[in-house]
Nucleic acid binder design. Structure first.
Length: 417
RNA sequence: GGAGGGGUUGCCGAGUGGUUAAAGGCAGCAGACUGUAAAUCUGCCCGCGUCAGCGUUCGUUGGUUCGAAUCCAACCCCCUCCA
């Protein structure tokens, strides 16, 4: 299946985006013609997306770059129901306001990756609350519900796993797959969307939409899923010391985002370059052949490219420079995450234990103490030997800052107001 | 409806009256080694603390006891078998 004619599928294939596809030949023909609208749905469960969604976002970007039309579906309606896929427990119920706020945050992420507008190749964003909120129960059951057999619904993995694991599945969540299937049909009617993409866990939901639309409208739709992206070491991707790797600046600084990519495991560098940057494949092939410590250059390029896509070139350069000064020169660099403290506090002396907590380098004072005891805390690159140590005016550099570190990689600047 | 089994600290999973903040594993954090990698080894891993201790924790609520995650009662939830 490596002989795709369309730029879109060929690129996705070469870069490792494709896990399953309902009808590769048919989709290839459509994509080759150009102007194909394709969508991916995103739930509004948080006010930012994280790197877990980045594969899907990159796919939409490639869709646009290869002359087709990306459609971002915000799950304003489905988020009220909750996707049971891959979960043992029901999702927390969100209010309409929270969902609205979350969608606003997510919108910002997409404006970075896609170009929105009114033109044929411009990306558009739609909200399924626009049609789901207005569904009338009985007509919906008669028109849509009759096409779903419980027998088949029970066989879908999202449902089956819940049942097998002896975890409750509410009727509310049970409806999720029907609503998502309906979304696909609705989007094919409204926008001529013939393609839905998603993670491999969405396969069942996507296929449902395809079948529903074929039965009701007699129209042929296509589905494409990405593989689950894990680290070479087997762990789930997207965790750092401080939590999820968010795409929004408000949630994660450009420096931390850059660092996340910089710390990629050797074995993942090539794969990540293909998925998360737009570098030419021959260039990537060259980079991933680098051995030993040279592969660090490839990691920096990965970090630069990925950060540029998500945060812009200026932010990426700044992050790279901050990292260079911090790690390669060992100097105190502006641009590190910063916390501010009041001048009188410093004069009185702030316990390092408290600072570690305030800086987010330790979750509790106890943890901060243990960090010091384990010789992992440093102030201005000197190990903090005493749990009772405090930061005093004398510890500040000329411009009124001090560098506080947990381990060799996590640094925070303390600045006096 | 009847008979059994079970709900333990982020997850898995020991523990059946005090020596238990609770074995072990995973995840996580730090140290060593390195290349801001992996693997490996070591330490840490509920909160507060002037490190003596104090406070909270084993589904929920009561009770027995000098003392309970461990015994009793009621309740909630889950599983298995029978009808």
């Amino acid at each position: 299946m490596s002989s795709f004619r369309s730029d879109f599928l060929r690129t996705l294939h070469e870069r490792g985006f494709i896990h399953q596809c309902t009808d590769p030949e048919g989709l290839d023909a459509l994509a080759a013609a150009g102007g194909l609208p394709g969508y991916i749905g995103f739930d509004a469960t948080a006010d930012s997306l994280h790197v877990g969604s980045l594969v899907q976002i990159m796919m939409l970007r490639w869709l646009q770059k290869t002359g087709n039309k990306p459609v971002v579906l915000m799950g304003g309606g489905t988020t009220k129901v909750g996707d049971p896929s891959g979960r043992d427990e029901s999702r927390r119920m969100l209010t309409d306001e929270q969902i609205g706020q979350n969608m606003a945050g997510i919108r910002k992420v997409f404006s970075q990756f896609l170009s929105f507008g009114e033109g044929a190749a411009d990306a558009v964003m739609v909200n399924n609350a626009d049609w789901l909120d207005r569904i009338e129960y009985i007509p919906f059951l008669r028109d849509v519900g009759r096409h779903f057999t419980i027998n088949r619904m029970l066989s879908f993995e999202s449902v089956r796993l819940r049942l097998e694991r002896e975890q409750p599945l509410t009727f509310l969540e049970f409806n999720y797959m029907i609503l998502q299937a309906y979304d696909f049909m609705e989007l094919s009617r409204r926008l001529g969307c013939q393609l839905q993409m998603g993670g491999s866990d969405q396969w069942g939901n996507i296929v449902n939409g395809i079948e529903l639309t074929r039965r009701i409208d007699g129209r042929e739709l296509f589905g494409l899923t990405t593989p689950l992206i894990t680290l070479a070491s087997g762990a789930k991707m997207g965790k750092t010391a401080s939590g999820a790797v968010w795409l929004n600046t408000e949630r994660l600084s450009a420096y931390d985002y850059w660092q996340f990519w910089r710390n990629t495991e050797d074995a993942d560098v090539g794969r990540f370059l293909r998925l998360f940057t737009e570098l030419p494949l021959d260039e990537i092939a060259r980079l991933e052949r680098l051995g030993g410590s040279e592969i660090n250059e490839a990691k920096k390029i990965l970090a630069n490219e990925a950060t540029t896509l998500c945060r812009g070139a200026a932010a990426a350069e700044e992050a790279a420079e901050t990292a260079r000064r911090t790690f390669e020169e060992g100097s105190l660099a502006e641009g590190l995450p910063t916390i501010e403290v009041a001048a009188p506090e410093i004069e009185a002396g702030i316990p390092v234990v408290d600072l570690l907590v305030r800086a987010g380098l330790a979750a509790s004072k106890g943890e901060a103490r243990r960090l010091i005891r384990g010789n992992g805390a440093r102030l201005n690159d000197a190990a903090v030997a005493d749990e009772a140590a405090a930061l005093r005016t004398a510890d500040l550099t000329g411009d009124g800052t001090a560098k506080l570190s947990a381990g060799r990689k996590r640094h925070v600047l303390v600045k006096v107001l």
